[in-house]
Every structure is written in structure tokens, then in C-alpha cells.
């Protein structure tokens, strides 16, 4: 297992090289450069050239890439053009929000999605199943910005239960109680994702329930609920575990719309804004870290497979 993990980490290196190279080149294909954006419309060409030289943007692309790579290997992701801060600390700020948001979202998915998925599989074809399937389709189809705005309207503006925007760090005043800022955005994100998990759990449980070993379990005289949980769901979980992993990864990196609706300083919004600002070092840094993050989740999913399914051995 340890060997396997080490191997996987080693295969990370070429992937990261390829990803960073592609990202670096693609960014520079975007018209516009950070210097002119920073200085605004009124800047003279001389001022722009001066700033470009300061930022090292006048060098050939190859040189820039190699310089950047050399710094990255020493643990230095560079300095944000826009924030004038180390890229790492810019990303760390966003990561706190995104990881907490994704974790809370996963919590809702597990608390609501898993039981509903199991129930609709057990009662498949019944009105309970029809209702949950219909509800799941509805939530999967509703755009998050619409759902987010309505949640704000009802729970912030109307009832005043939760704040509607922003997220102060847990290290700031308020401490853990600042998590209340994430309740509405995490519910917004959870709705479509829980709907997909419900459908997935239902489908894979129905698949498993047709297998021979489920008949064996029933022949033992086990209660149908015990058969459904211990035998059917336990096997269905193998297929569902991958979806959990990738949902979490996507929640951390791709929650742009929800982060925008709730003005959250998350990773998704950081990427989009950095692209608009042509903040090359931040874009490169974030993408690099997201690639590492995805590969870590991938590895975790594989480890989860191996621990859920005794037939899988990692070599």
C-alpha cells in the first residue's frame, strides 16, 4: 500500500510538468497583459513597458517558464501581480474558504443524499421513489445562482437566520461561529450534487440487488432493511465512493458561480478574477495546486476502493 502510494506520487511529476507547461502557454495566448491592466487606460506605452520589465514580462516566454519552474521547485510560486503578495498566501486565503465550503457541502450530501438514495432504492417504483426521483431531477436542473439567490431571499433577507455574503476567516473574530456564513452557499452547492448522488446510489443499489449474493442474504431470513444496508448498499458504495471523491474535488475548485453569488473569497472565484486581471503567477499557482489536489483525491479514491473491495489489491 505504501509502495503504491509512493509510486503514485512519483507519477505526479510528469503530469505536473505537462500541466504547468500547458497552463503557462495558454495564459500567454490571452490578449492583454498585466502591466497595461494594472496601470489602466491612461498609462503611456513607456510606463507599461517599464512595469513589464519590472515584472519580468519582457523576457522570451521560454525563459519566463524556466525561471518560474526553477522558483516553483524551490517552493516559491512567485508574487501576485495584483495583490503584490506571495501567490502561496493568496491561494491559502482562498483555499480556507473553498475547503470549508466543500466539506460542509459534502456533509449535507451525506446527511441528505445517502439516506434518500437508499430509501428510493429500497422502495423503487413506489410513490416515495417517484417523489425523490422527481425532486432530485428538479434540484439537479435548477441553476445554482437561482437557488442561491432564493435561499438568500428567504433565509437572510426574510428570516434573518444566516448572513448572505462574505466569509471572514475562522482565525478572525467570531472563530468557528463564522461557519454560519457558509450554511447557505453549502446548501446551494449541495442541492444539485446531492441529487446526482441520490440517483447514483439508487441506480447502483438496484444493480447490486439483482446479484446472486443478495438472494443468498435473503435466503438467510434477514430483514429486508438489513439486506439493503449491509449487503446491497455496502457493495453499491464501491461504485459511489469515486463519485464522492470527484464531487469533493470539483466543489473545491469549481464553485465559481456560488462563490460569486455569496461573495465568498474562494478558489473558483480567485481563478476567474485572476484571469480577468491577467495575474499570471496566481493563475499558474492555483492551477498547479488544483492539479496536485485532483491527483491526491484520485489517490484517495483508489485507496478507498482497496479498502471497500477486498478483490482490489494495490500494486
Amino acid at each position: 500500500m505504501l509502495n503504491y502510494a509512493l509510486n503514485r506520487v512519483l507519477t505526479l511529476v510528469p503530469t505536473l510538468l505537462a500541466a504547468s507547461f500547458l497552463v503557462f502557454m495558454f495564459i500567454h495566448l490571452i490578449p492583454g497583459d498585466p502591466a497595461s491592466i494594472l496601470l489602466g487606460d491612461t498609462a503611456t506605452p513607456e510606463e507599461v513597458a517599464e512595469l513589464s520589465r519590472e515584472l519580468g514580462l519582457d523576457e522570451p516566454l521560454w525563459t519566463q517558464y524556466v525561471l518560474w519552474l526553477g522558483n516553483v521547485l524551490q517552493g516559491d510560486l512567485g508574487t501576485s501581480v495584483f495583490f503584490r503578495e506571495p501567490v502561496l498566501s493568496v491561494i491559502a486565503d482562498g483555499a480556507e474558504t473553498s475547503v470549508l465550503l466543500a466539506t460542509m457541502t459534502m456533509f449535507w450530501i451525506v446527511v441528505f443524499g445517502v439516506p434518500i438514495g437508499i430509501i428510493s432504492a429500497i422502495r423503487h417504483g413506489s410513490w416515495v421513489d417517484q417523489a425523490t426521483s422527481g425532486g432530485a431531477m428538479l434540484f439537479a436542473s435548477v441553476p445554482t445562482f437561482w437557488l442561491g439567490l432564493y435561499l438568500i431571499l428567504i433565509f437572510s433577507v426574510g428570516l434573518g437566520w444566516f448572513p448572505s455574503s462574505g466569509f471572514p476567516s475562522l482565525a478572525d473574530e467570531g472563530g468557528a461561529s463564522n461557519l454560519r456564513y457558509l450554511v447557505l452557499p453549502s446548501l446551494t452547492l449541495a442541492a444539485p450534487n446531492a441529487a446526482l448522488i441520490i440517483r447514483l446510489i439508487r441506480a447502483s443499489m438496484l444493480d447490486v440487488s439483482r446479484e446472486d449474493h443478495v438472494r443468498t442474504a435473503r435466503a438467510k431470513g434477514l430483514h429486508p432493511v438489513r439486506v439493503a444496508i449491509r449487503h446491497v448498499f455496502r457493495n453499491a458504495l464501491i461504485a459511489v465512493s469515486a463519485a464522492f471523491g470527484f464531487t469533493f474535488a470539483a466543489l473545491v475548485s469549481e464553485a465559481v458561480v456560488t462563490e460569486t453569488v455569496f461573495s465568498l473569497p474562494g478558489i473558483g472565484r480567485l481563478v476567474v478574477q485572476s484571469i480577468l486581471r491577467r495575474d499570471y503567477p496566481v493563475i499558474q499557482g492555483v492551477i498547479l495546486i488544483i492539479v496536485v489536489f485532483y491527483m491526491a483525491i484520485n489517490l484517495l479514491v483508489d485507496l478507498a476502493y482497496a479498502s471497500l473491495d477486498p478483490r482490489v489489491s494495490l500494486k
Binding site: 446479484e211 446472486d212 449474493h213 438467510k220 431470513g221 457493495n235 473491495d309
Partner: peptide, 23 residues
């Protein structure tokens, strides 16, 4: 019915390869 199944009456099946829970 379930109190009889697996207790006073039991069954084995044609497919030994798939009749046991793999996990």
C-alpha cells in the same frame, strides 16, 4: 416467513461463484 427461511429451511444455489457476498 423469514423466521423459517435460513432456520428450518435453507437453500443453496447454482452459482457458487457469485452467491457469496464479495466484500
Amino acid at each position: 416467513r423469514r423466521r423459517v427461511m435460513g432456520d428450518q429451511m435453507a437453500m443453496i444455489f447454482q452459482e457458487p461463484m457469485t452467491s457469496l457476498n464479495p466484500v
